[in-house]
């Protein structure tokens, strides 16, 4: 498994990187490499030049502001998992980060790289959809903010243009009485998800669900928002029957394919089950906050 030939540059700053993306054909951004390198080794990608953004300062920070969490495009899975604000207030992110790949991959793989790669089974996209995150992409011409729900176009295809770099992801603050959870069904530790369900919700003063986002991964050509399930849950009492109705609605909205992870029918059923489990956990966390 030997990659094809390509050129390699490691620009010192973002402007330089963007100029290269603007000026050179077949350029591809390299962050941690844990998504891109496997493709290169299988010769499924053959870029002319890799633009390594590893040396660009300031892209890997995680900052909590009043409105939410600002995550640099090159922040690693591990740095997100270990971030104090994430541990305190973003359990959905903490859950998801803990289950991506294995420890070595979490040391070097990045949220931005994973999101830009847009593997239909990746975990972060569902998380960003559930939490209604915004994704910033920058070109030589300037910044462009894209709603996570509009970002994923098809398998391995996003709204990023070839001359753009994903620089930052903003996750809105969860607000009062919030709970989030990621329920991942995998065949074995380190496996890609068979089904991944991200839930972010709030409970109102009356104990009913006042806001909810649900993102699903691995059960459609792209990760997507389970909007039918969200509609069922909005304003509803968080009980088992409601969770199951939401789960079934999410299953109905999914379009998995049969593969080594299982037949489509099984995956649909697992969407329902994992939605229920994620909701249970998210609601329980929200109640603890209350």
């Amino acid at each position: 498994m030997i990659p094809p030939q390509f050129d390699y540059v490691r620009p010192a700053n973002l402007d330089e990187a963007l100029a290269i993306l603007r000026d050179r054909e077949g350029a591809k951004v390299l962050a941690g490499g844990y998504s891109l390198l496997p493709l290169l080794k299988l010769r499924l990608a053959s870029p002319e030049v890799l633009v390594d953004i590893g040396a660009i300062a300031g892209m890997d920070g995680i900052a909590e502001v009043e409105k939410g969490l600002h995550i640099g495009g090159r922040a690693t899975h591990r740095s997100i998992h270990e971030n104090a604000a994430v541990k305190a207030r973003y359990p959905l992110l903490e859950d998801a980060a803990a289950g991506i790949g294995d420890p070595q991959i979490r040391n070097w793989g990045t949220m931005g790289g994973s999101v830009a790669h847009a593997d239909p089974s990746a975990d972060w996209p569902a998380v960003l959809i559930a939490s209604r995150a915004a994704i910033n992409v920058r070109s030589a011409g300037g910044d462009r903010w894209i709603d996570a729900r509009d970002f994923f176009i098809d398998s391995f295809q996003t709204a990023i243009e070839p001359n753009e770099i994903l620089t930052e992801i903003r996750v809105p603050a969860p607000g009062a009485n919030a709970g989030g959870a990621y329920a991942k069904l995998e065949r074995r530790a380190g496996d890609f998800s068979t089904v991944g369900v991200a839930v972010q919700l709030n409970l109102g003063a009356d104990g009913q669900i006042s806001a909810v986002g649900i993102g699903l991964t691995a059960v459609a050509p792209t990760p997507f928002a389970a909007t039918d399930a969200e509609a069922i849950l909005m304003g509803a009492t968080p009980d088992e029957a409601t969770f199951r109705r939401a789960g079934d609605a999410a299953a109905a909205q999914s379009s998995p394919t049969t593969d080594a992870h299982g037949p489509a029918e099984y995956k649909k059923a697992m969407v329902s089950e994992m939605v229920v489990r994620a909701l249970r956990s998210a609601v329980s966390r929200a109640r603890k906050q209350a």
Binding site: R187, R188, A189, G190, D191, F192, A260
Partner: peptide, 28 residues
């Protein structure tokens, strides 16, 4: 529980890498 070398009806190997031929890790 995990491993099997399966083929589709065209004889395509469906478990030809460690991503799908699942060796147990220390976790399981």
């Amino acid at each position: 529980l995990l491993e099997s070398m399966t083929y589709d009806e065209n004889g395509n190997n469906l478990a030809g890498t460690f991503m799908d031929y699942l060796l147990p890790t220390a976790v399981e």
